[in-house]
Every structure is written in C-alpha cells, then in structure tokens.
Design a binder for these strands. Sequence first.
DNA 1: CGCAGTCTAGCAC
DNA 2: GTGCTAGACTGCG
Length: 100
Amino acid sequence: MGFSCKVYDLCRRIPKGKVTTYKIIAGKLGTKAYRAVGNALHRNPCAPQVPCHRVVGSDGRLVGFAHGIKMKKALLQKEGIEIIGYKVAGMEKVLFRFRA
DNA sequence: CGCAGTCTAGCAC
DNA sequence: GTGCTAGACTGCG
C-alpha cells in the first residue's frame, strides 16, 4: 500500500481549484507506470476520501473516473475549474505540479 | 490510428 | 500463498 499511500498523499496536496496529472504523480513517485497511479485511485479511494477527481490526464483531459467522467467534470466545475467538453479549460493555470 | 512499456490492485487457482 | 489479468496512462511507430 506504499504506492497508493503516496498517491493519496499527493492527491490530498492538490489545493482546491487545482488539478494534477497522472504523469506528474507518477513522476513524483519516481515511476513511469501512470496506469498504476490511476489504477490505485480507481480501486481504493473511489470515495471522496481523496480528491481523485482533481487528477486528470497529461493534457488536462478528463480520462476515466470510477463515478463516471460526468461526475469528475461536475466536481471540477464545482471546484471552480472550467471544463470544456471533457477537458480542463486552461489546465495550465490550474495545474498543480507540487512545486513546494 | 495502433501497439508497446510500466506498476499496482484484484481475482483466480 | 502465488500467479495471471485488467486497468482512470503515455509515448512512439
């Protein structure tokens, strides 16, 4: 559970109104298995335990979500993030790279 | 547009 | 307890 634990920690670090990408998370974990990151989030914290909905694809695109892409989209919009279709609008502005 | 690479979690044996 | 499959991705061909 070390991997997933780290994933959760990073997700929890994401401030409201911000999003991150699987690539960044995986990179932070020192791995390249972006799939494993999404998988860990998909299997474990399907609940609002961690803001898994703040995690998007490499291009800010809303890829899969346990509760459905719609839910993810709605949640992100609620966070104040603008979503166009199934992608984050200006995701570069809301992209959190864990710089601190 | 399609295939391969990488890792974890879950299910099956 | 060990092994195999599937999966919320990404990059390259």
